[in-house]
Structures are given as structure tokens and as C-alpha cells.
């Protein structure tokens, strides 16, 4: 499906979605965090969308808030979609039961960006020790001993 066909399909499912199509490489949706799981279920299970392959999950610190960027692809139709979700209070719903690849990726996002995924089966730090203070990928993280800031 082309980006505009995808946009028509996805916007028929629920309200409150924002689309960025112009200038972007892939169709990009911004979803309110309370609708994230609904949207992910739809994206995976709808027969025309069939986004079964989540190939990238990225936690981004946008300054005023933090959020996740999910990249999804359909192994059947080979179309790609990007989902943005933002959080003001550091919590997001887990999608690890919908896409199991998120089990480790959400642990990474928790470890390095401090986003707490409610409902995650095993949310622990992944790379850093358990007693590490802070989350290094945040923009306001300071570590004078180990970071060279130009």
C-alpha cells in the first residue's frame, strides 16, 4: 500500500492520530499514549496492514518530554510505517506481548532512557549495573568522569 492508502486505512480505526507524510521517508503516525496498545494490535492483526515485523524501537529524549519511535514493516506487503508516542511522566504501556522483540528493546530503553513500561514482564537494567544512577541517553545526563563533551 502507498503511504496515502495506509493513512486512509489507519485513520479509519481511531480518532486522535496525527500524520506526518510530507517530506518524511515513511508514513509517520503520532498516537496518544493511552491508544498505543490498541493501535499496535490493529497494525499487527488487520489483514490489509499486516505489520508483523517490528524492526526498530528507539527511545528519544525530545527535551520537553520523552518518547518511543517504532518502525514496523509488513513481511507480506513490504510497506513500512513509523509510530511515535510521547510520555510526560516517563511511563508507557508495554507492547512486548504484541511484539516479543520489544522484551529486550524495552529493557534497553528503560536502562538508557529511563522510560518505565507498565506491564513489562521483566523490566530490569540490561547493559548497566543494577545500582547505576541515572539514564545515560537522556540529554540532561551528566557524567564528568566518563563523558567528553565538546
Amino acid at each position: 500500500m502507498t503511504n496515502s492508502e495506509l493513512q486512509v486505512l489507519v485513520s479509519s480505526w481511531m480518532d486522535g492520530l496525527e500524520f506526518i507524510d510530507e517530506g518524511a521517508q515513511y508514513l509517520t503516525i503520532t498516537v496518544p499514549k493511552e491508544n498505543l496498545r490498541d493501535l499496535m494490535f490493529k497494525l499487527r492483526d488487520d489483514s490489509e496492514a499486516a505489520f508483523d515485523y517490528m524492526f526498530s524501537l528507539t527511545a528519544v529524549d525530545w527535551g520537553k518530554n520523552r518518547g518511543m519511535v517504532y518502525h514496523l514493516e509488513s513481511t507480506k506487503y513490504r510497506h513500512i510505517i513509523v509510530v511515535h508516542v510521547y510520555t510526560e511522566d516517563e511511563t508507557l504501556d508495554t507492547i512486548s506481548d504484541i511484539y516479543p522483540t520489544a522484551i529486550l528493546n524495552e529493557r534497553e530503553a528503560y536502562d538508557l532512557m529511563g522510560i518505565i513500561f507498565t506491564g513489562h514482564p521483566d523490566l530490569r537494567r540490561l547493559f548497566l549495573q543494577d545500582d547505576w544512577v541515572g539514564h545515560p541517553l537522556r540529554k540532561d545526563y551528566v557524567d564528568e568522569a566518563n563523558m567528553i563533551v565538546k
Binding site: 518524511a24 524492526f55 526498530s56 518502525h71 513509523v82
Partner: peptide, 20 residues
């Protein structure tokens, strides 16, 4: 300003670069 994604096939599988 914007987001860019590039995927390639490395010897181990799909390697991707995501730039904001």
C-alpha cells in the same frame, strides 16, 4: 531537520541506522 532510516543487509542480518 527530520528523521532518516537506512537499512542494509549485513553478514548477520538487517542492520539499520536511524537518525533524528
Amino acid at each position: 531537520k527530520g528523521e532518516y532510516y537506512q537499512k542494509v543487509e549485513s553478514a548477520r542480518g538487517e542492520f539499520g541506522v536511524f537518525i533524528v
